[in-house]
Write a protein that binds this DNA or RNA. Structure first.
Lengths: 191, 191
DNA sequence: CAATATATGGAGATCGCCTCCGCTTTGTCA
DNA sequence: TGACAAAGCGGAGGCGATCTCCATATATTG
C-alpha cells in the first residue's frame, strides 16, 4: 500500500504525505472493523488529523476506500494475470470467480460500495476496479473459446452475479464454505 | 392495506387509527419514491403527525416497512397458493422465482432490508415474509419431486439467490427484462 | 532567514434518528 | 350532559454522522 500519491503531479509536502499515509492505514483498519460505512470523522480522529484534512485528500468515501483497497486490488490483478495463462481455461474461470467473491468480502459492505461505484465512471473506486472487470472479461473469453462456458454469457452479467453472491453471503453471515456452495449452485445451474 | 391494527388487542382509539392508516399510506408513497431508507421524520411530517406518534406505532423502520408492504405481500401469497396447484411444477418454480424477484423491487433497497430482517426473527418484517419463504419451500419441493430441479438445492439458498439477483438488478438500474436474463443465467447454469 | 505556497484543524451548519414528557383528545359512566 | 381517567399526541432536544470554511501553522525555496 502506501505512498502512491507522490507518483502523479507535484509531490505532496512531507507532512501532507505523512498524513495521507496515516489516514489510508487507519482507514483500512476501520473499514475492516466496521465495514465500508465506518465513520470518516472517526477515521480522521484516529489518524490524528482534522476532518478537513481527510476530506481534502479524499473528497469522497469511495476515494478513501479505493486507496485503502490498494494492496488487495494489486493482489487480485496478479491473480488475474496468472489465470489468463492457466492451461485449463474452465478451471481458471472457476478459480477466478471464487477469488473475486472472496476479495469482495475484504470489508463488510464492499459489494454494495463497489456496485454503486460501478454506476458512476467518475468514481475513483470504479477506476480502481478496472483490473478486476477487465480480468473477468479476458478469463471469461478464454473459457468460452474452450467451450467451458455458454457463449451467450456476458462479462458484465457475470461480474454482477459474483458481486451479488458475495453480497448474499455477507447478509447471511455465511462462512467461506457456504459462499462456495452458493457459487457452485450458480455455475452448475439449478437443474 | 389499511385497518388491520384493530384486529388484535383492544382496538385503537379513533384518532389513533386514523393516524396509523395515514402514516402507512404516506410511508408507502415515501418508500416508493426514496427507497426503504426514506426519512422517517419526513414521513411523520408528511402524514401530519409528530415523530413520537410514528415511533409509537412503529418502533422500528422494519415495522413500518412491513405495514407498508401489506398489500404486496398479500398479493404474493395469493400467487404462491396458485402456483402450488399448477400442474407443471417446473414451470411453477420458474414463475415463482420471477414473481418473487419482481416483488423485491417494489421499493429501492428492499432486498437489503429484507435480507437484514431475515437474520433477526424478532423483526416484524421477517415475520411478514414467512408466506414468501414458505412459498419457496413448497414450490421448490414440488419441483424437486417432479425432477425439474436438482435434489440438493436448498430453499434457503434459493431464497438468498433470488434476493441477490433482485439486489444486483437494482444496483445496475436494470429493466425487468435484464433481471430476467440474469435469472435465466442462474436457473440454466453457466455451462 | 525571510517570503510564499501549501496544508492544517476544528468549529459549526445540516440532517436523520429516536426519546421523553407536559398537554390534548377521546371514550365512558353517572 | 358533564367530567374524569385513559389513551394518544407532538415537538423540543440529545446524539452522531457528513462536509465546509477560513484563520492559523508549517514546509520549502531562494
Amino acid at each position: 500500500m502506501s505512498t502512491d500519491a507522490a507518483t502523479l503531479k507535484r509531490p505532496l509536502r512531507a507532512d501532507a504525505q505523512r498524513n495521507y499515509d496515516k489516514i489510508v492505514q487507519v482507514a483500512a483498519e476501520a473499514f475492516a472493523e466496521k465495514g465500508t460505512g465506518a465513520s470518516l470523522d472517526d477515521i480522521a480522529c484516529r489518524a490524528g488529523v482534522g476532518p478537513g484534512t481527510l476530506y481534502r485528500h479524499f473528497p469522497t468515501r469511495d476515494a478513501l476506500l479505493a486507496a485503502a483497497l490498494g494492496d488487495a486490488l494489486a493482489e487480485l490483478s496478479a491473480t488475474a494475470r496468472r489465470l489468463v495463462s492457466e492451461p485449463d481455461a474452465g478451471a481458471a474461470l472457476d478459480e477466478w470467480i471464487v477469488e473475486l467473491a472472496r476479495h469482495l468480502r475484504t470489508y463488510g459492505g464492499l459489494p454494495d460500495s463497489i456496485a454503486t461505484a460501478m454506476q458512476d465512471p467518475s468514481s475513483p473506486l470504479c477506476t480502481s476496479c478496472q483490473p478486476m472487470t477487465k480480468g473477468t472479461v479476458k478469463i471469461l473469453e478464454r473459457a468460452k473459446e474452450a467451450g467451458a462456458v455458454r457463449a451467450d454469457v456476458q462479462a458484465s452479467d457475470l461480474n454482477a452475479l459474483i458481486g451479488s453472491l458475495a453480497w448474499a453471503a455477507e447478509q447471511r453471515g455465511d462462512s467461506d464454505a457456504a459462499l462456495q456452495r452458493l457459487i457452485r449452485l450458480v455455475t452448475e445451474g439449478l437443474r
